[in-house]
Write a protein that binds this DNA or RNA. Structure first.
Length: 435
RNA sequence: GCGAUCGUAGCUCAGCAUGGUUAGAGCACCUGGUUGUGGUCCAGGAUGUCGCCGGUUCGAAUCCGGUCGGUCGCCCCA
């Protein structure tokens, strides 16, 4: 087959809104994900993995058909069996599904799970917003006590701090679905918005009936002005929700977690009840555009006491959060720690002369088997080239093997930091190189 | 999904308003100076379908149209 028959060469760029993660950037991502999972594990949250795709219904019923995410951002396709499947746009609904599927709600509670992985949403990509993006998060299911809210929020805030981003925690309660609580409040809100109708921006006027709470999210000047006298949900919570919210706040203060009350905070997914929170960028008000772009949230979460039932399962209250790894990396910037972005290679085996190539490979292999991080030349480089490659690999030691060394069962060990060299018996190498 | 803006070596960019011989720089890469030694220095070398397709022209990186992609804004969120 000649070139003509092959047609146009394939486009090697990854699909729009996606990216190939390669070293050194990929090291930062995997390190951050590990830090997250370790932090979560330290509070009793075990790893959970669910499929990359789910039955579309899980998101329609779980996340809510009126939400923006389900309405127009999902990657939905039909498989060969005629099933409608969707690439996961978030992981709370799938995790709750998995818990119900395994009947974990009948075992010891709470069920505490943590995850890290890719999510998918079809939106116009820009800085900090991609079609495939990485999230870490936790879910605690089975307890409606305010203590869980406090634990979850504290873990998120502590992880973000250790990841090197400065955040402000915005906190709100949006009550539960009942005429004495949110439903009742919504009537008041709609009434108020109706009165202000001509002052609202057109986009927001449309939302008054479809999703009135979301009007609070508006960035339109006109709408913001019109909202000045709007009733806040926190003033209309039922007694139980008000008490719950009060406890959460008291516990956060106990734990030394600072927060700002934000009565206009409304999250985009329909399943949230009571506590809702968001971690927004606090590092440099002016430099915001240069940091997260038009995005300002590292992540957020909240309680979802009705989610399990809307998926058709037993009642199972829960709370969790999701954080965007991509955004955290942007917000943390490239710290000084990132210079040593390489892998954990401690030693580099240098072969001098053709006769040393085979012994070098087997020495490297033996050292690796004993648990050391070892690399060597696979390009047939000159000695000078190998030394250069050794320096580049980030290794502390060069283990040099030439005819003289082989003859005496030794190697020349060079400290690449100081340049000091010494002869070392091969059998002593592993011990000397151990960190 | 809508609007704006950008797209030249691996990377960061110059060149483009006034189209015209082999398209440049720095960094990175490779080789040599040092027949068995890196990080400094010196000398040399390789590298581009000027995003892609088409149009105007004797001639296009340069002008025009379309398209794809990045970035920014809207929307929404992680």
């Amino acid at each position: 087959m000649d070139d003509k028959d092959r047609g146009a060469p394939p486009d090697l760029a990854p699909p729009k809104g996606t990216t190939d993660l390669l070293p050194p950037e990929s090291w930062r991502v995997s390190r951050l994900a590990r830090l997250a999972m370790d932090t979560f594990a330290g509070a009793g949250y075990g790893p959970v993995d669910t499929p990359i795709f789910e039955h579309t219904e899980i998101f329609e019923r779980g996340v809510g058909a009126t939400s923006e995410v389900v309405g127009k951002q999902m990657y939905t396709f039909t498989d060969r069996g005629g099933r409608s499947l969707t690439l996961r746009p978030e992981l709370t609904a799938p995790v709750v599904r998995a818990v119900l599927a395994a009947n974990l709600q009948r075992g010891p509670l709470p069920v505490k799970l943590a995850y890290a992985g890719p999510m998918f949403r079809q939106e116009r990509p820009q800085k900090g917003r991609y079609r495939q993006f990485y999230q870490v998060g936790i879910e605690a299911m089975g307890s409606a006590l305010p203590a869980v809210d406090a634990e979850v929020i504290e873990i998120g805030s502590r992880f973000l701090a250790s990841a090197g981003v400065e955040t402000t925690l915005l906190l709100n309660s949006i009550g539960h679905v009942d005429s004495s609580c949110r439903t009742g409040y919504l009537k008041l809100l709609v009434e108020y918005l109706e009165e202000q109708r001509d002052r609202l921006a057109p986009v927001d006027a449309e939302r008054v009936h479809t999703n009135p709470l979301r009007v609070f999210d508006s960035k339109e000047e006109a709408t913001r002005a019109a909202l000045e006298g709007a009733p806040y949900i926190t003033d209309h919570l039922c007694d139980d929700c008000a008490k719950h919210f009060e406890s959460v706040r008291a516990l956060l203060e106990d734990l030394g977690v600072g927060y700002e009350l934000e009565p206009r905070l409304v999250r985009g997914l329909d399943y949230y009840t009571r506590t809702a929170f968001e971690f927004v960028d606090a590092g440099g008000q002016q430099g915001k555009a240069a940091r997260l772009g038009s995005q300002n949230a590292f992540g957020g979460g909240g309680r979802y006491d009705g989610l399990a039932e809307s998926l058709g399962g037993d009642a199972l209250p829960g709370i969790g959060f999701a954080l965007g790894l991509d955004r955290i990396l942007i917000g943390a910037g490239g710290g000084p720690d990132d210079d040593v972005a390489g892998g954990p290679v401690n030693a580099y085996v240098v072969a001098i002369g053709a006769a040393a190539a085979r012994p070098a490979l087997s020495l490297a292999t033996r050292l690796r088997a004993s648990g050391l991080g070892v690399d060597l030349d696979l390009m047939g480089r000159s000695v000078k080239g190998q030394m250069k490659d050794a320096a580049r690999s980030g290794a502390r030691w060069a283990v040099i093997l030439g005819d003289a060394e082989i003859a005496s069962g030794e190697s020349t060990l060079r400290d690449l930091t100081s340049g000091a060299e010494s002869r070392v018996a091969l059998e002593d190498l592993a011990g000397l190189l151990a960190p």
